[in-house]
Structure formats: structure tokens, C-alpha cells
Design a protein around this nucleic acid. Sequence first.
DNA 1: CTGAAAGCGCTAACAC
DNA 2: GTGTTAGCGCTTTCAG
Lengths: 337, 337
Amino acid sequence: MNIKEVASKAGVSITTVSRVLNTPEKVNNKTREKVLSTMEELNYTPNWFARNLQTSRSNIIGVVMPDTLEISNMETAKGVEDIAHKHNSNIILVNTAYDPQTEKTQVMSLIERKIDGLILIQSLLDSEDIKVIRSKGIPFVFVGKNDNSEGENVVYTNYDEAVEEVINYLAYMNRKKIAVILPENQEFINREKLKGYIKAMKNNSLDINESYIIKTENSLEGGYVATSRLLDDIKPDAIFAATDTIAFGAIESIKQNGLTVDDVGVVGFEGLEAGAVVEPKLTTVIKPSYRMGLTAGRVLFDMIEDELCEDANSIMLQAKMKIRKSCGNKERIREIW
Amino acid sequence: MNIKEVASKAGVSITTVSRVLNTPEKVNNKTREKVLSTMEELNYTPNWFARNLQTSRSNIIGVVMPDTLEISNMETAKGVEDIAHKHNSNIILVNTAYDPQTEKTQVMSLIERKIDGLILIQSLLDSEDIKVIRSKGIPFVFVGKNDNSEGENVVYTNYDEAVEEVINYLAYMNRKKIAVILPENQEFINREKLKGYIKAMKNNSLDINESYIIKTENSLEGGYVATSRLLDDIKPDAIFAATDTIAFGAIESIKQNGLTVDDVGVVGFEGLEAGAVVEPKLTTVIKPSYRMGLTAGRVLFDMIEDELCEDANSIMLQAKMKIRKSCGNKERIREIW
DNA sequence: CTGAAAGCGCTAACAC
DNA sequence: GTGTTAGCGCTTTCAG
């Protein structure tokens, strides 16, 4: 089923059929009607490859992320998708499982597929890879800073300042020995968060000790085990868990050890819905994931369509602290979510 | 930058270049080396449109779902993606927001994009739409039954039997007035679940009353409000929440009303990770989402590659009840997750 | 307003 | 092992 059949059946040339598809206003009313009806009749859909072979735009953009099961990544992807739809585009979603090699391979394969642009969430590409992408002339936007995002288009959130705020708050709540549990697969973000932690600890004249900072798997179990170790060992009076999932594990461990968050306060990071239903409800930092996706999408389509590749944008969206009960704030006692 | 330039620069014909790309073993070692190096030199990537114009396979499959933020949908998508990668394919992800019209439009646009196949998760398409897809010759697999999945390829889970098991268990725990809260956007699934509910209630000689069954938004708030209404009104001694999210809201409401799960037991459905961290931990039914994705992916690629479109597969994967403390099982008191 | 014909970049018979 | 050539289905000059 192709344009030729439609043409012959409608008694016109293929050019006319093509025109009905692309510039219908330039075709005589009657002819157009006829062509349209034979298209219907023959159940014809134009061949997208043939079309794009000319225009060489695919109306597809690639969205690459380390884990499609992390809800914040998907919120970002949804933001991108919402923008993409407005531009008549779809997204190809790729999961890299936090593996730089997989990411590289996947990105290259996307480029071969002639995607119009690329959104790289929590990218682990090295500067060499980025140079290659650039040389292919594919517009791309990072979501989340990384070691090579300097001077590139990047939409990010201020992890360091957000953590600083968290620690300041814990200090204000009279916590002195504040430990940190980091997920082992997010090196760059961890560095940012630690920056804020260290700055705030110093500003509040609190002790920083290497044994206060530990890394673990980003899971309930990881948080649980890490916290149990901390409780046995340095006995902190507060724990900053760098992800909500770790925080949930931490709370569980504290409870199982017969302690409460009055003894050991917990703050998470991310803003998972579950934070409102754990007991006690989790104080956390809400990442603006969806808005990051929207913003990154807009920047990307600006580049694709207006070819405004001039200056790189570096756009920061604020993370927001959400105070609930898990670090001992009594005033929050009647709050529902 | 095209195959022609590479050919002339390497001093060979375009056929040879093409062969290096597709059947490298059929090209003389030296020639191949030379071609490969000039490709490198010219930073050449083959034009995917031109390629597919011939083979008319895109190596893309469409995955359509009502909500990309529902973790179980994404688990299914991940299963599909894992299979797709093995077949050198990518997935285009589409969000329909539970709107049949959007789903239809999106599916049609995917078909124009010449996707090789389609995975339809919780589809709301009508039989007319399905006929159209079929007429285009695109292989597709449903994940989750629906009103039109009879006689089509479908991978599903046995909602009715799973709910039956839940109700039997509650009856065994001596609960008599068992209410149900359903999410308002999942009509078909609700019907299946109600089937199991009614069957089990009858088998256990328990009263069924219309006011025991209510629908609400699929959210914490929805579950909270619905439960509060039930507690004011018919005062059930157990609630089957048809989604975990609703269950979390229900537990919150029970607590806020000064009751415990000894008064009103709660069982959810889905197996969200958060179920292990709420207080009390949630008894629920675990949906085999990831395996459904894997299975659907395998079936789809069988159809795409071997063109085995003969008999439609109808594959059921068992949902599994996970008993924790939220319906008053004292034996589970020491369990961690 | 319509049609003929020349590609878009690549693959795949078919010859050599 | 390699090259020639005829398309894949469409868009787009260029004539009429």
C-alpha cells in the first residue's frame, strides 16, 4: 500500500497525492476530496521512512536514564514527554542501569536512529563521548549536572544548598552527631550533597568524622544495614539519608533497635509519596523532577527548531525541604500528609 | 556524509561499503579495514531511514500505558525493554493518561512511525480500533485483559482469584464486614476484582451490601477520605483496598480515627515497596508486573520475527499474596520487610 | 492546479 | 570478492 496505488486508484499523479498530504491548500477541492477518500478506502498510511529520508527529521527524541524504575527519573521523562507531544514528537526511553558503557552504546544507537535530540538524565558519559555527540550535530540537554556538563546545556537542582538547609535545620533542632548515608551508585550527586553537608557542619561548629559518612546500596535493606552499623558504632543523634529509600530503611532500623526519632532523627531526600505514610512521616527534600523534565524539553526543542545553539543554558531549579515528624519536630504532630 | 562519499574516499563501490555494514564476513579483510577506517575518519553513521526504507523494519516497538508514573507499569515496560534490547530494538514510551481517545491517536501515530510491534498495557481501545491495528498488520500484545482482549494475544494476571484469596484470608481472620475501595480509573480491573470479592464473600456466607463497595481517586487522599466515610457509616472490620496507594490512605485514616488494624484490617493490592515501611506493614497482593513485561515482550518478538501469528496466546501469570501485619496477623510481628 | 522526473541514502539481486 | 543497477516510497523542482 503506497502512494502509487493511491494515485492510480484516484486517477491522479503521485505528486498530487503527496501534495494532499503536505500542502492540501494547494490542491483543488474536488481532487483533494477524491484523493482523501481513496486513501481512506485503501486504508493508506504514508511511509514514514520514505518521508523522513527527505526531511531527515524523525520527530523522536531520546531520553536516557540510569534507572527507569526510579520515580523521579520517570517524572522527568513525563515532563519531557509532555513537551514532546506539543511538538508532535515521541520519546524513546532508554535504561542504562548506571553503566557508562551501556549509556554510550545506547546513545550511539539512538543517534543512528536519527533522533532529533537527546535528554541525558544523570549522565555518566565522559568528555570524549560528549565530543562525539556534539560532532554528530545532535542537540542534547543534561538533566542533572555531572563531571562534563560545564559549558553544556544543563537543567539541574541545587543539591548542595538543599543539604545545607537540611543540616542547618537538624542543628537548629539541637542535633550534634549528624551522620550521612549515601547511595553508592550516584557519585556525582553524592559529592554535591557532601559539599553542602560539610559546609553546614562547619558553619554550625559540628564535628565531622569520616566514620559519619557511609555508602550503601540504594534500597531499604541498604539503609537498614547501614543504620544498624551506625547505631552500633558511632551512635549518631541524626541521620541524613541521601535518598528516601535509604531513609525508610533507616527508620525501620531505629525502630527495631528500640529507639525513636527523638533519639535519632532522620531526613531523606527526594520526596517519594511513601514519605507521607511511613511512621513517623519523613522529613525530606523534594526534587523538582517533573519541572526539570519540562524545562529540559523546552530547551531541547528550542535548539531543534530554532537552531538556537548559541549559548549553553545552565538552569537551576530549586529543591524544597518538606518538614514532617521524622526528625523530632513536635509541631508537626497533627499533620496528615 | 553518506555511503557514496565513504565509497569514493575508500576507493571502493557503495555496495562494498554496504556489505561492510551488513555482512562484514563477506568482505576481504584488507578492504574491510580500509572501509572501516575511512568511515571512522569521515565520522560516518549510516542513515537509518534509508536503511529501513528497504527492510521496512524499524527496530522500535511501542509501549503504551495509561500512566508512566505508576511503578507497576514501568516494571512491565522494563521487562519489555530488556527483551527488546536482546533483539536490538528500542522502545517508544507513550502515556495515555487513561484517555481512550489519546490512546487511539497515539497508537495510530506509532503505526505511522512503522514500529515493529505494540505492547498495550491496560488498554482502553475499542474493538473498532483493534480492527484497524490488525488491518495494518502490526503485531500487538495486551498486558492485562480488557473488554476486547478475547481471542487476542494477552498476558494477564488473575485479579479475581487473587482477591478471592484475600477475602478468604480475612474471613479466616474472623473479619465479617469487609468493605472494598476501588480506584475510579480502572474499570475493567475493578470488575475482575469484584468478581473475586463477591464469590469469596458468598462462599464464606458473609453479607454483601452495596454500601460496602465504594470508588475513589487512586491516591492517598482518595483512600483516606473513602475510609473515613466508611468508618463513619457502615463501620467495617476490614477493608480491601484495590491499590496499595488507597490502602496507605486507609491506614492513615484508621489511625487518625483512633482505631487500629485490630479494629479494621487493611489489605492492599500491588506490592509497592512502601508497603514494607508503613506502620503497620501492609498485607497486599504482589502483581507480577516485570514478568508480564518480559513475557509480553517475548510473545511480541516471536510474532515479529518468526511471523508466528497463528494462534493467539493467552498467558496468565499468578499474583501472589504477601501477608504482613495490616490485617491483624500477630505472627508477623517480628518480620522486618 | 497538476504531472514528469530526479533524487534522498541505502540494500539486494545479479553479473563479473 | 567486488561492482552495476534497479528499486524502497516519498518530496520537490521544473514544466506545463
